[in-house]
Design a protein around this nucleic acid. Structure first.
Length: 925
RNA sequence: GCGAGGGUUGCUGAGCCUGGCCAAAGGCGCCGGACUUAAGAUCCGGUCCCGCAGGGGUCCGUGGGUUCGAAUCCCACCCCUCGCACCA
């Protein structure tokens, strides 16, 4: 057979389609869909391919349905990733160079230019467009932009001016992970180690020792009442420092850390831990307590001085026990202050004894600490003399009092050691000042978004809970950065708008992007955007005519119909954009719907560029052809499900396209009409309806099941039912036109080629998508074929069992009184009572046992049939004799023996009595 | 830990909301056959177990429950995936 090779036609159509999908406002109804734009820092893999191909299938579908469809694309280049990549390349980092040179196949001379970060995004955005065109994406490329274009920056300025005015942007301090060498905050992806580390907030409980304060960092300030001593490590060096004018003693490491956290720190001198041992310190809550030695004290954990609460902290308990075992400090008695169910007076003691821990170096200590901590926090109560409140309440109260009245400060540190920047330097917690925040914590704003979400279509609907939860969970978002690419904050030029915060309403920008390109950015003043997006004011920097044109185009496309994105963006981008839309646009221009994608797997493992576990989209296109890649990516799973790129499935997809091509090509020359045509055409209408329905609800896989596999299965039965030696028919030819158009959104290259071959007019991309024709639906014929195919199946299964060489087949057709029974049972509500009712009938009574048997068998039969079939059958009695008479020749050909059709009532054959409605008795001899 | 989603027959993946159409679709793989000098491709048939008559048995993460009847509803448990923030 002829294999259809899409490669040869792909270039031709890509060229032809260069401007085909540029969409301008016209009178027709619009359909505007957008996808999260890519950050072009590397080559596309097949996962990216699906992200853009699924919307393309939807875009092509609605275009064929007569909508004016806008599918735009742009590039997000804001932020720091390319800066890091560029630096690593210029430093000659082998791993990065190998990734770009070998995996992404960047030419050597281009790679050399990557020392300039913008070159990276410039190169890859060109590549993205080239490969996207190769995929046949029906994008309006005139509107392409990047987020550092000067016009776009003007747009972001407008956005932030309004957010600021609307009190959605506020200023505050914020603890961040910070690299002193890079002099910049670092995100988790910038870390070599410790990307799971959390920032923990400690309260420093200030114990006095003469002029000095000894700050003890704690998560449990409420236990200060129970402090019996402090722990200091005798083997380490502490420092005396002045902190904001106050004299402190703490570990050297801690002094460095505190210096980054809003405190003025001057080191005065060293002091060994040894020197502190034995001194007496005091705090209003605990009174005078001694400082004792403990080697478990880590100078790099918070302040390096620990307050000891042996009744409630297993570490403290066991350290004290160890000392007392040596006969030291026998006078110290743990002070209980919290009661918790399941433990005695001293939970720490109970826990240690129950676990049989020997000494403070036992690894089980961490677990015990956590256990006691959790129990006391969730179920514990302070003793009456300490207020009697639940621990979780007391903790916050004591914490506040400590800070207000007892000189406590707050200190941040990580919950785990070794947090290391990619540059190799250690990372610390730093308090950033003057940081700008988007105030997502604002309850009013949240309430507004909850309400708005109710009106938004979500696909699949299960994600709604996650959106609602995200809205509740969002806290203020630091929306500015010191470094990276991006737009300067209009009222504070020291800051750049952070990448996730400058990409929330660009869907509105697309609507006029191509026109803004022609305009001098200096003229894009905030009042111009006010006019375009809000219809207010009288800007002078642009002619009125131009302003109206821009406003009209915006209003034509907006609001967008659907936004597509992967599910990991629910917790940030997709929710952010709702907040921003609500703050900036009127109610009638708010988002209408979102479609959430699943993730991509490669041979069952998660696809990930950083791990090198990717299949490049371009390689896939070269190896299998664009249509195969498209059909596989949208057909192997529904968009919201995870998909798995497996070569063997991709190959079989290519075979399916070949088969489609062959069938349609062969169908071009066939002639003649046959009775079974009616059935095929009728079935086709249902396939058309189902395909329309599936695509309208974004079920690309389901749509392909109907439009491809469904039709293929129908054709199989159809060919079987054609007269012997007949290979095709006029109906087959007619179906081709419909079938090509049904598949055009999925496999545009093949469809376009076939469309031209069968003489279709214009591009199939703009041809009418098939609509079901109710006139062509013939339920009678479909039922008759259903009866026939069920009977054929029965005959086949019997033949397989009996293993004899048959000489003839006899079919006994159920008599009309059995149909009466069938109808009665089908209509009855109470399946138990119905038999009695049937037997009341005089005519039935005379049939006696035959009638009750038939009723029982019919009941079973009805349970086995699909309910829809039952109601159809009950609606009108079939002329089964006629169906089988017509199909006699077919049956004889199928089974190669003579077939006799007999009304069951006219035969004495014992089997004849077994005939049931829609299930003739079969005798094979 | 918190939040969301999920566990189906060799694989993949429908079905579950709206309980009887379910031994459970489609695809892949595998087996057999046709075609062919042959391979590939293509086409046809089979693919839980038993049965020489269209039937029966067991099955949908585990254990209970509701019901005449459960893959589908309820409860508990086990396991998996994703998100948890200044990052695209």
């Amino acid at each position: 057979m002829s294999r259809f090779d899409t490669h040869t036609t792909e270039d031709e159509y890509c060229k032809k389609w260069e401007h085909s999908f540029e969409a301008d406002p016209i009178v027709s109804e619009k359909f505007y869909l957008t996808v999260a734009y890519p950050y072009p820092s590397g080559a596309m893999h097949v996962g990216h391919g699906r992200t853009y191909i699924v919307p393309d299938v939807i875009a092509r579908f609605w275009r064929m349905k007569g909508r004016q469809v806008l599918y735009p694309m742009a590039f997000h280049v804001t932020g720091t990733p390319v800066i890091g990549i560029s630096r690593r390349i210029s430093q000659g980092d082998e791993k990065t160079i190998r990734l770009y040179r070998d995996l992404y196949k960047v030419p050597e001379e281009t790679l050399n230019r990557f020392v300039e970060p913008r070159e990276i995004v410039r190169y890859f955005s060109q590549e993205y467009e080239r490969v996207m065109r190769h995929c046949g994406l029906s994008i309006d490329w005139r509107r392409r932009f990047t987020t550092v274009d000067p016009q776009y920056s003007k747009f972001i300025e407008w956005q932030y001016i309004h957010l600021h005015e609307g009190n959605h942007v506020i200023r505050g301090a914020h603890p961040v992970k910070y690299c002193p060498q890079c002099d910049n905050p670092v995100g988790d992806h910038d870390l070599l180690e410790g990307d799971k580390a959390d920032i923990i907030k400690f309260v420093l409980v200030m114990f006095s020792w003469g002029d000095y304060k000894l700050p003890c960092a704690t998560l449990r300030p409420e236990t200060t009442y129970g402090v019996t001593n402090l722990w200091v490590n005798p083997d380490i060096t502490y420092v005396k420092v002045t902190v904001d004018g106050q004299k402190w003693i703490l570990s050297r490491e801690a002094a460095d850390k505190i210096g980054l956290q809003d405190h003025d720190v001057v080191v005065e001198g060293d002091m060994s831990g040894e020197e502190l041992i034995g001194v007496t310190v005091s705090h209003p809550f605990s009174g005078d307590v001694p400082v004792l030695p403990a080697t478990f004290v880590d100078p790099d954990m918070a302040t390096g001085i620990v307050m000891s609460v042996p009744a409630h902290a297993p570490f403290d308990y066991i350290a004290l026990r160890d000392l007392q075992a040596q006969g030291l400090h026998a006078g110290i008695v743990p002070v209980p202050l919290i009661t918790v169910e399941g433990y005695g007076e001293m939970p720490a003691k109970d826990a240690v004894e129950r676990a049989g821990v020997q000494n403070q170096n036992d690894p089980a200590m961490d677990v015990l600490t956590q256990e006691v901590y959790n129990a006391e926090f969730s179920r514990g109560r302070m003793l009456p003399k300490y207020g009697g409140k639940p621990v979780r309440e007391a903790r916050d109260e004591v914490s506040a009092i400590m800070v207000e009245r007892y000189g406590s400060a707050v200190m941040y540190d990580f919950d785990s050691r070794s947090v290391v920047c990619r540059c190799g330097s250690r990372v610390f917690v730093r308090i950033l000042h003057d940081q700008w925040f988007l105030q997502y914590s604002d309850p009013e704003w949240k309430a507004q978004i909850h309400k708005q979400l109710d009106g938004i279509t979500l696909v699949p609907p299960e994600v709604r809970a996650e959106f609602d939860r995200t809205i509740d969970w969002l806290k203020d978002w630091a929306c500015t950065r010191r470094i990276g690419l991006g737009t300067k904050l209009p009222w504070d030029k020291e800051w750049l708008v952070e990448p996730l915060s400058d990409s929330t309403i660009y869907m509105a920008y697309y609507t006029i992007a191509h026109k803004l390109k022609q305009i001098d950015p200096a003229r894009l003043t905030p009042d111009v955007f006010d006019y375009i997006f809000r219809g207010t004011g009288t800007p002078s920097s642009l002619p009125q005519e131009q302003l109206d044109d821009l406003r009209n185009e915006f209003l034509y496309w907006y609001p967008y119909d659907y936004r597509f994105s992967a599910k990991d963006l629910i917790s940030n981008h997709l929710t952010f954009q709702l907040f921003h839309h609500a703050a900036l646009f009127p109610e009638n221009l708010q988002p209408e719907g979102m479609v959430i994608f699943g993730m991509g797997l490669l041979d069952g493992a998660k696809m990930s560029s950083s791990k090198g576990n990717v299949f490049l989209l371009e390689d896939a296109l070269d190896e299998f052809g664009a249509d195969t890649v498209r059909m596989f990516l949208v057909g192997s799973a529904e968009p919201w499900q995870d998909f798995d790129w497996r070569k063997e499935f991709v190959i079989s997809t290519r075979k399916q396209i070949d088969r489609f091509y062959t069938t349609v090509s062969e169908g071009r020359v066939t002639e003649g009409t046959y009775p079974i045509d009616r059935w095929l055409i009728s079935r086709l209408q249902k396939r058309i309806a189902a395909t329309n329905e599936a695509l309208a609800s974004f079920q690309t896989r389901q749509a392909l099941q109907e439009a491809y596999f469904g039709i293929e299965a129908d054709l199989k039965w159809y060919r079987r039912r054609l007269p012997a030696e007949i290979r095709g028919s006029a109906a087959l030819r007619e179906i081709s036109s419909t079938w090509i158009r049904l598949l055009a959104p999925f496999i545009p290259f093949t469809s376009e080629t076939l469309w031209a071959e069968i003489g279709g007019s214009g591009d199939v991309a703009f041809a009418a998508f098939p609509e079901p024709d109710a006139q062509s639906i013939d339920e009678e014929t479909e039922l008759a074929e259903e009866l026939l195919s069920r009977t054929v199946e029965d005959i086949e299964s019997i033949m397989k069992l009996i293993q004899i060489e048959p000489t003839g087949i006899t079919l006994f057709i159920a008599p009309s009184w059995k149909w009466d029974i069938f109808t009665t049972i089908a209509h009855s509500e109470d399946k138990k009572q119905v038999i009695r009712d049937i037997m009341k009938d005089e005519a039935m009574k005379t049939r006696g046992k035959a009638a009750t048997d038939a009723a029982k068998q019919t009941t079973t039969l009805i349970h086995r049939f699909p309910p829809q079939l039952v109601s159809q059958l009950a609606g009108s009695m079939r002329d089964e004799m006629a169906v089988f008479q017509e199909a006699k020749e077919f049956l004889e050909r199928e089974f190669a023996v003579p077939v006799t059709i007999v009304p069951a009532g006219e035969s004495n054959h014992p089997k004849a009595a077994a005939a049931l409605p829609f299930k003739p008795a079969i005798v094979i001899e």
